[in-house]
Design a protein around this nucleic acid. Structure first.
Lengths: 183, 183
DNA sequence: AATGAATTGTACCAATTGGTACAAATCCGG
DNA sequence: CCGGATTTGTACCAATTGGTACAATTCATT
Protein backbone atom coordinates (compact mmCIF):
# COMPACT_ATOMS: atom_id res chain seq x y z
CA UNK A 1 0.00 0.00 0.00
CA UNK A 2 1.23 3.49 -0.76
CA UNK A 3 0.36 6.93 0.48
CA UNK A 4 -2.27 7.73 -2.14
CA UNK A 5 -4.20 4.55 -1.36
CA UNK A 6 -4.61 5.46 2.30
CA UNK A 7 -6.39 8.76 1.63
CA UNK A 8 -9.87 7.41 0.82
CA UNK A 9 -9.68 5.05 3.79
CA UNK A 10 -8.56 7.81 6.13
CA UNK A 11 -11.26 10.06 4.71
CA UNK A 12 -13.98 7.63 5.65
CA UNK A 13 -12.62 7.26 9.17
CA UNK A 14 -12.51 11.04 9.64
CA UNK A 15 -16.05 11.26 8.32
CA UNK A 16 -17.25 8.67 10.80
CA UNK A 17 -15.29 9.68 13.90
CA UNK A 18 -14.19 13.26 13.29
CA UNK A 19 -10.64 14.50 13.58
CA UNK A 20 -10.25 14.11 17.33
CA UNK A 21 -12.39 11.00 17.48
CA UNK A 22 -10.32 9.19 14.89
CA UNK A 23 -7.68 7.86 17.26
CA UNK A 24 -4.75 5.91 15.89
CA UNK A 25 -6.16 2.70 17.30
CA UNK A 26 -9.53 3.38 15.64
CA UNK A 27 -7.82 4.19 12.35
CA UNK A 28 -5.98 0.92 12.60
CA UNK A 29 -9.09 -1.03 13.49
CA UNK A 30 -11.11 0.46 10.63
CA UNK A 31 -8.50 0.49 7.88
CA UNK A 32 -5.90 -2.09 8.84
CA UNK A 33 -3.19 0.55 8.44
CA UNK A 34 -0.70 0.40 11.30
CA UNK A 35 1.20 3.10 13.12
CA UNK A 36 4.39 2.25 11.22
CA UNK A 37 2.84 2.95 7.84
CA UNK A 38 0.90 5.99 9.00
CA UNK A 39 3.93 7.77 10.40
CA UNK A 40 5.97 6.70 7.40
CA UNK A 41 3.53 8.37 4.99
CA UNK A 42 2.60 11.26 7.29
CA UNK A 43 5.66 11.99 9.43
CA UNK A 44 4.08 14.89 11.27
CA UNK A 45 1.07 12.88 12.37
CA UNK A 46 -2.70 13.19 12.33
CA UNK A 47 -2.78 16.79 11.22
CA UNK A 48 -0.83 15.90 8.10
CA UNK A 49 -3.19 12.98 7.48
CA UNK A 50 -6.28 15.16 7.63
CA UNK A 51 -4.66 17.87 5.52
CA UNK A 52 -3.80 15.28 2.86
CA UNK A 53 -7.35 13.93 2.93
CA UNK A 54 -8.79 17.43 2.52
CA UNK A 55 -6.45 18.12 -0.36
CA UNK A 56 -7.46 14.84 -1.94
CA UNK A 57 -11.12 15.79 -1.65
CA UNK A 58 -10.41 19.22 -3.06
CA UNK A 59 -8.69 17.63 -6.05
CA UNK A 60 -11.65 15.35 -6.66
CA UNK A 61 -14.12 18.23 -6.66
CA UNK A 62 -11.81 20.28 -8.84
CA UNK A 63 -11.65 17.53 -11.42
CA UNK A 64 -15.24 16.30 -11.28
CA UNK A 65 -17.19 19.44 -10.47
CA UNK A 66 -15.39 22.78 -10.63
CA UNK A 67 -13.49 22.17 -13.87
CA UNK A 68 -16.56 21.03 -15.84
CA UNK A 69 -18.49 24.04 -14.53
CA UNK A 70 -15.74 26.36 -15.69
CA UNK A 71 -14.84 24.78 -19.00
CA UNK A 72 -17.83 22.95 -20.40
CA UNK A 73 -19.09 24.30 -23.71
CA UNK A 74 -22.61 23.68 -22.38
CA UNK A 75 -22.75 25.16 -18.88
CA UNK A 76 -26.37 24.14 -18.34
CA UNK A 77 -25.31 20.52 -18.84
CA UNK A 78 -22.37 20.91 -16.45
CA UNK A 79 -24.67 22.39 -13.80
CA UNK A 80 -27.15 19.59 -14.19
CA UNK A 81 -24.34 17.07 -14.03
CA UNK A 82 -23.04 18.74 -10.86
CA UNK A 83 -26.23 17.88 -9.01
CA UNK A 84 -25.98 14.28 -10.17
CA UNK A 85 -22.32 14.02 -9.15
CA UNK A 86 -22.99 15.59 -5.77
CA UNK A 87 -25.91 13.29 -5.11
CA UNK A 88 -23.72 10.29 -5.88
CA UNK A 89 -20.73 11.61 -3.90
CA UNK A 90 -22.74 12.29 -0.75
CA UNK A 91 -24.81 9.14 -1.22
CA UNK A 92 -28.02 11.14 -1.04
CA UNK A 93 -26.94 12.66 2.23
CA UNK A 94 -25.98 9.43 3.96
CA UNK A 95 -22.31 10.35 3.55
CA UNK A 96 -21.35 13.62 5.16
CA UNK A 97 -19.20 16.41 3.75
CA UNK A 98 -15.90 16.30 5.60
CA UNK A 99 -15.31 19.97 4.87
CA UNK A 100 -18.64 20.94 6.37
CA UNK A 101 -18.08 18.71 9.38
CA UNK A 102 -14.65 20.21 10.03
CA UNK A 103 -16.15 23.67 9.69
CA UNK A 104 -18.44 23.00 12.65
CA UNK A 105 -15.75 21.32 14.76
CA UNK A 106 -12.92 22.71 16.82
CA UNK A 107 -10.50 21.74 14.06
CA UNK A 108 -11.77 24.59 11.93
CA UNK A 109 -8.90 26.91 12.73
CA UNK A 110 -6.33 24.26 11.94
CA UNK A 111 -7.64 23.75 8.41
CA UNK A 112 -9.19 27.18 7.89
CA UNK A 113 -7.50 27.81 4.55
CA UNK A 114 -8.48 24.47 3.04
CA UNK A 115 -12.09 24.81 4.20
CA UNK A 116 -12.39 28.35 2.91
CA UNK A 117 -10.79 27.50 -0.44
CA UNK A 118 -13.05 24.53 -1.05
CA UNK A 119 -16.25 26.55 -0.73
CA UNK A 120 -14.80 29.63 -2.43
CA UNK A 121 -13.92 27.58 -5.51
CA UNK A 122 -17.33 25.96 -5.54
CA UNK A 123 -19.18 29.28 -5.25
CA UNK A 124 -17.05 30.92 -7.91
CA UNK A 125 -17.25 28.08 -10.41
CA UNK A 126 -21.00 27.73 -10.02
CA UNK A 127 -21.70 31.46 -10.17
CA UNK A 128 -19.60 31.77 -13.33
CA UNK A 129 -21.46 28.88 -14.97
CA UNK A 130 -24.82 30.42 -14.01
CA UNK A 131 -23.68 33.69 -15.56
CA UNK A 132 -22.78 31.91 -18.78
CA UNK A 133 -26.21 30.33 -18.80
CA UNK A 134 -27.79 33.74 -18.75
CA UNK A 135 -28.40 34.72 -15.12
CA UNK A 136 -27.46 38.23 -14.15
CA UNK A 137 -24.20 38.30 -12.14
CA UNK A 138 -25.91 39.25 -8.88
CA UNK A 139 -28.57 36.60 -9.32
CA UNK A 140 -25.92 34.05 -10.23
CA UNK A 141 -23.96 34.71 -7.03
CA UNK A 142 -27.06 34.53 -4.91
CA UNK A 143 -28.17 31.30 -6.56
CA UNK A 144 -24.73 29.76 -6.08
CA UNK A 145 -24.89 30.53 -2.37
CA UNK A 146 -28.38 29.09 -2.20
CA UNK A 147 -27.18 25.86 -3.80
CA UNK A 148 -24.04 25.40 -1.71
CA UNK A 149 -25.73 26.21 1.60
CA UNK A 150 -28.75 24.14 0.62
CA UNK A 151 -26.60 21.07 -0.01
CA UNK A 152 -24.75 21.38 3.29
CA UNK A 153 -27.96 21.92 5.20
CA UNK A 154 -29.61 19.00 3.43
CA UNK A 155 -26.81 16.70 4.59
CA UNK A 156 -27.42 17.76 8.19
CA UNK A 157 -31.17 17.27 7.96
CA UNK A 158 -30.82 13.91 6.24
CA UNK A 159 -28.46 12.83 9.00
CA UNK A 160 -30.69 13.83 11.87
CA UNK A 161 -33.83 12.41 10.32
CA UNK A 162 -32.03 9.38 8.92
CA UNK A 163 -34.00 9.81 5.72
CA UNK A 164 -32.38 10.66 2.41
CA UNK A 165 -35.64 12.04 1.08
CA UNK A 166 -34.62 15.41 2.53
CA UNK A 167 -31.41 15.42 0.54
CA UNK A 168 -33.05 14.25 -2.65
CA UNK A 169 -35.85 16.80 -2.45
CA UNK A 170 -33.32 19.58 -1.83
CA UNK A 171 -31.22 18.53 -4.79
CA UNK A 172 -34.20 18.50 -7.12
CA UNK A 173 -35.45 21.84 -5.86
CA UNK A 174 -32.02 23.43 -6.33
CA UNK A 175 -31.58 21.78 -9.69
CA UNK A 176 -34.86 23.31 -10.83
CA UNK A 177 -33.93 26.71 -9.41
CA UNK A 178 -30.78 26.81 -11.53
CA UNK A 179 -32.66 26.17 -14.75
CA UNK A 180 -33.26 29.52 -16.37
CA UNK A 181 -36.70 30.28 -17.74
CA UNK A 182 -36.58 30.35 -21.50
CA UNK A 183 -38.51 33.41 -22.69
CA UNK B 1 -24.13 28.11 41.23
CA UNK B 2 -26.84 25.59 40.50
CA UNK B 3 -27.47 23.10 37.73
CA UNK B 4 -29.54 25.37 35.51
CA UNK B 5 -26.85 28.05 35.51
CA UNK B 6 -24.23 25.70 34.14
CA UNK B 7 -26.18 24.80 30.98
CA UNK B 8 -25.45 27.95 28.93
CA UNK B 9 -21.78 27.79 29.93
CA UNK B 10 -21.53 24.12 29.02
CA UNK B 11 -23.36 24.84 25.79
CA UNK B 12 -20.77 27.35 24.69
CA UNK B 13 -17.92 24.96 25.52
CA UNK B 14 -19.54 22.17 23.50
CA UNK B 15 -20.06 24.59 20.64
CA UNK B 16 -16.42 25.59 20.67
CA UNK B 17 -14.77 22.23 21.30
CA UNK B 18 -17.37 19.62 20.38
CA UNK B 19 -18.49 16.79 22.61
CA UNK B 20 -15.24 14.81 22.59
CA UNK B 21 -13.05 17.89 22.46
CA UNK B 22 -14.66 19.40 25.55
CA UNK B 23 -12.53 17.60 28.11
CA UNK B 24 -13.20 18.09 31.78
CA UNK B 25 -10.07 20.20 32.12
CA UNK B 26 -11.14 22.39 29.21
CA UNK B 27 -14.63 22.75 30.67
CA UNK B 28 -13.06 23.81 33.93
CA UNK B 29 -10.67 26.25 32.25
CA UNK B 30 -13.45 27.86 30.19
CA UNK B 31 -16.24 27.98 32.75
CA UNK B 32 -14.61 27.79 36.15
CA UNK B 33 -16.84 24.86 37.04
CA UNK B 34 -14.85 22.11 38.77
CA UNK B 35 -15.13 18.34 38.62
CA UNK B 36 -16.84 18.29 41.99
CA UNK B 37 -19.74 20.45 40.84
CA UNK B 38 -20.02 18.83 37.44
CA UNK B 39 -20.39 15.32 38.80
CA UNK B 40 -22.68 16.59 41.51
CA UNK B 41 -25.09 18.06 38.95
CA UNK B 42 -24.55 15.41 36.29
CA UNK B 43 -23.76 12.16 38.12
CA UNK B 44 -23.46 10.09 34.97
CA UNK B 45 -20.92 12.38 33.37
CA UNK B 46 -20.37 14.17 30.09
CA UNK B 47 -23.17 12.45 28.24
CA UNK B 48 -25.65 13.69 30.81
CA UNK B 49 -24.20 17.20 30.52
CA UNK B 50 -24.59 17.27 26.75
CA UNK B 51 -28.07 15.80 26.93
CA UNK B 52 -29.08 18.49 29.43
CA UNK B 53 -27.63 21.20 27.20
CA UNK B 54 -29.53 19.87 24.18
CA UNK B 55 -32.71 19.75 26.18
CA UNK B 56 -32.10 23.31 27.34
CA UNK B 57 -31.65 24.44 23.72
CA UNK B 58 -34.77 22.57 22.69
CA UNK B 59 -36.73 24.32 25.40
CA UNK B 60 -35.46 27.72 24.27
CA UNK B 61 -36.49 27.11 20.67
CA UNK B 62 -39.81 25.71 21.78
CA UNK B 63 -40.55 28.83 23.79
CA UNK B 64 -39.09 31.47 21.46
CA UNK B 65 -39.68 29.98 18.02
CA UNK B 66 -41.92 26.93 17.74
CA UNK B 67 -44.65 28.07 20.10
CA UNK B 68 -45.11 31.51 18.47
CA UNK B 69 -45.21 29.81 15.06
CA UNK B 70 -47.91 27.47 16.25
CA UNK B 71 -50.00 29.84 18.35
CA UNK B 72 -49.64 33.37 17.06
CA UNK B 73 -52.83 34.91 15.77
CA UNK B 74 -50.73 36.47 12.98
CA UNK B 75 -48.59 33.66 11.57
CA UNK B 76 -46.88 35.95 9.05
CA UNK B 77 -45.61 38.05 11.94
CA UNK B 78 -44.40 34.96 13.80
CA UNK B 79 -42.54 33.75 10.71
CA UNK B 80 -40.90 37.10 10.24
CA UNK B 81 -40.00 37.20 13.91
CA UNK B 82 -38.50 33.71 13.63
CA UNK B 83 -35.88 34.97 11.18
CA UNK B 84 -35.02 37.82 13.49
CA UNK B 85 -34.77 35.53 16.52
CA UNK B 86 -32.65 33.01 14.62
CA UNK B 87 -30.31 35.70 13.35
CA UNK B 88 -29.81 36.94 16.89
CA UNK B 89 -29.46 33.45 18.37
CA UNK B 90 -26.81 32.35 15.89
CA UNK B 91 -25.13 35.76 15.94
CA UNK B 92 -25.41 36.03 12.17
CA UNK B 93 -23.70 32.69 11.75
CA UNK B 94 -20.76 33.37 14.05
CA UNK B 95 -22.31 31.06 16.63
CA UNK B 96 -22.89 27.54 15.45
CA UNK B 97 -25.93 25.35 15.92
CA UNK B 98 -24.98 22.68 18.45
CA UNK B 99 -27.64 20.35 17.06
CA UNK B 100 -26.24 20.65 13.55
CA UNK B 101 -22.69 20.20 14.79
CA UNK B 102 -23.61 17.06 16.73
CA UNK B 103 -25.42 15.75 13.66
CA UNK B 104 -22.15 15.79 11.70
CA UNK B 105 -20.06 14.35 14.52
CA UNK B 106 -19.64 10.83 15.82
CA UNK B 107 -21.89 11.70 18.75
CA UNK B 108 -24.90 11.64 16.46
CA UNK B 109 -26.03 8.17 17.48
CA UNK B 110 -25.79 8.98 21.16
CA UNK B 111 -28.20 11.93 20.86
CA UNK B 112 -30.11 10.77 17.80
CA UNK B 113 -33.53 11.27 19.34
CA UNK B 114 -32.84 14.81 20.56
CA UNK B 115 -31.35 15.85 17.21
CA UNK B 116 -34.23 14.37 15.25
CA UNK B 117 -36.85 15.90 17.52
CA UNK B 118 -35.37 19.39 17.33
CA UNK B 119 -35.55 19.55 13.54
CA UNK B 120 -38.84 17.68 13.35
CA UNK B 121 -40.47 20.23 15.63
CA UNK B 122 -39.00 23.11 13.68
CA UNK B 123 -40.14 21.73 10.30
CA UNK B 124 -43.63 20.97 11.56
CA UNK B 125 -44.16 24.29 13.31
CA UNK B 126 -42.92 26.28 10.34
CA UNK B 127 -44.86 24.28 7.77
CA UNK B 128 -48.06 24.68 9.80
CA UNK B 129 -47.53 28.43 10.04
CA UNK B 130 -46.90 28.65 6.30
CA UNK B 131 -50.13 26.76 5.69
CA UNK B 132 -52.02 29.18 7.87
CA UNK B 133 -50.54 32.05 5.89
CA UNK B 134 -51.97 30.59 2.72
CA UNK B 135 -49.36 28.32 1.17
CA UNK B 136 -50.59 24.96 -0.10
CA UNK B 137 -49.61 22.13 2.27
CA UNK B 138 -47.05 20.65 -0.13
CA UNK B 139 -45.53 24.01 -0.83
CA UNK B 140 -45.45 24.81 2.88
CA UNK B 141 -43.53 21.61 3.67
CA UNK B 142 -41.07 22.21 0.88
CA UNK B 143 -40.54 25.82 1.96
CA UNK B 144 -39.99 24.76 5.58
CA UNK B 145 -37.29 22.34 4.48
CA UNK B 146 -35.71 25.03 2.35
CA UNK B 147 -35.59 27.40 5.32
CA UNK B 148 -34.22 24.92 7.86
CA UNK B 149 -31.56 23.48 5.54
CA UNK B 150 -30.70 26.95 4.30
CA UNK B 151 -30.04 28.19 7.82
CA UNK B 152 -27.83 25.23 8.71
CA UNK B 153 -25.88 25.52 5.47
CA UNK B 154 -25.51 29.25 5.95
CA UNK B 155 -23.89 28.67 9.34
CA UNK B 156 -21.34 26.36 7.74
CA UNK B 157 -20.55 28.78 4.93
CA UNK B 158 -20.28 31.75 7.29
CA UNK B 159 -17.88 29.72 9.43
CA UNK B 160 -15.59 28.67 6.62
CA UNK B 161 -15.52 32.11 4.99
CA UNK B 162 -15.45 33.90 8.33
CA UNK B 163 -17.93 36.38 6.95
CA UNK B 164 -21.44 36.75 8.31
CA UNK B 165 -22.63 38.28 5.06
CA UNK B 166 -23.39 34.74 3.87
CA UNK B 167 -25.69 34.13 6.81
CA UNK B 168 -27.38 37.50 6.55
CA UNK B 169 -28.02 37.17 2.82
CA UNK B 170 -29.45 33.67 3.33
CA UNK B 171 -31.77 34.86 6.07
CA UNK B 172 -33.10 37.70 3.95
CA UNK B 173 -33.56 35.46 0.92
CA UNK B 174 -35.46 32.89 3.00
CA UNK B 175 -37.49 35.56 4.74
CA UNK B 176 -38.57 36.88 1.36
CA UNK B 177 -39.36 33.39 0.07
CA UNK B 178 -41.78 32.82 2.94
CA UNK B 179 -43.78 35.97 2.19
CA UNK B 180 -46.75 34.97 0.15
CA UNK B 181 -47.59 37.03 -2.93
CA UNK B 182 -50.79 38.98 -2.33
CA UNK B 183 -52.98 38.59 -5.39
C1' DA C 1 19.90 -14.46 -5.82
C1' DA C 2 21.71 -9.96 -4.06
C1' DT C 3 20.97 -5.37 -2.84
C1' DG C 4 19.35 -1.10 -1.15
C1' DA C 5 15.04 1.26 -0.44
C1' DA C 6 10.38 1.41 0.90
C1' DT C 7 7.06 -0.39 4.03
C1' DT C 8 5.30 -2.27 8.33
C1' DG C 9 4.66 -4.30 13.29
C1' DT C 10 5.72 -3.71 18.02
C1' DA C 11 7.32 -2.14 22.24
C1' DC C 12 7.50 1.91 24.60
C1' DC C 13 6.80 6.89 26.29
C1' DA C 14 4.85 11.00 28.78
C1' DA C 15 0.57 13.37 28.82
C1' DT C 16 -4.23 13.46 29.07
C1' DT C 17 -8.68 11.32 29.35
C1' DG C 18 -13.35 10.47 32.00
C1' DG C 19 -14.55 9.14 36.29
C1' DT C 20 -14.45 8.26 41.67
C1' DA C 21 -13.89 9.25 46.59
C1' DC C 22 -14.18 12.17 50.09
C1' DA C 23 -13.08 15.90 53.05
C1' DA C 24 -13.66 20.78 53.27
C1' DA C 25 -16.30 24.67 52.50
C1' DT C 26 -20.58 27.04 51.86
C1' DC C 27 -25.30 27.80 52.23
C1' DC C 28 -29.82 28.32 54.33
C1' DG C 29 -33.77 27.52 57.52
C1' DG C 30 -34.58 27.31 62.46
C1' DC D 1 -25.63 30.93 65.78
C1' DC D 2 -26.49 26.16 64.93
C1' DG D 3 -26.84 21.96 62.10
C1' DG D 4 -28.03 19.46 58.16
C1' DA D 5 -27.86 19.62 53.29
C1' DT D 6 -25.90 21.30 49.16
C1' DT D 7 -21.92 22.55 46.68
C1' DT D 8 -17.01 22.40 45.64
C1' DG D 9 -11.74 21.39 45.44
C1' DT D 10 -8.33 17.90 45.31
C1' DA D 11 -5.98 13.74 45.15
C1' DC D 12 -6.21 9.67 42.81
C1' DC D 13 -7.25 5.82 39.29
C1' DA D 14 -6.96 2.77 35.13
C1' DA D 15 -7.38 3.43 30.26
C1' DT D 16 -6.30 5.73 26.19
C1' DT D 17 -4.10 9.34 23.64
C1' DG D 18 -0.54 10.92 19.83
C1' DG D 19 3.96 10.14 18.93
C1' DT D 20 8.87 7.82 18.67
C1' DA D 21 12.34 4.26 17.86
C1' DC D 22 13.81 0.64 15.53
C1' DA D 23 14.13 -3.96 13.99
C1' DA D 24 11.94 -6.93 10.76
C1' DT D 25 9.80 -7.58 6.61
C1' DT D 26 8.63 -6.73 1.78
C1' DC D 27 9.61 -4.85 -2.58
C1' DA D 28 11.64 -3.67 -6.98
C1' DT D 29 15.76 -3.56 -9.71
C1' DT D 30 19.72 -5.60 -11.28
Amino acid sequence: MEREDTLPLLGEVFREFGFEGASLSIIHKQTGIGRGSLYHFFPSGKEEMAAAVLSNIDAWFGREVFKPLAESAEPEVAIDQMFTSVDAYFRSGKRICLVGAFALSDTRDRFAVALSTYFRRWLDALAAALCRVGFAPDRACSLAEEVVTGIQGAIILTRTQQDSVFFERSIERLRAATRIEKT
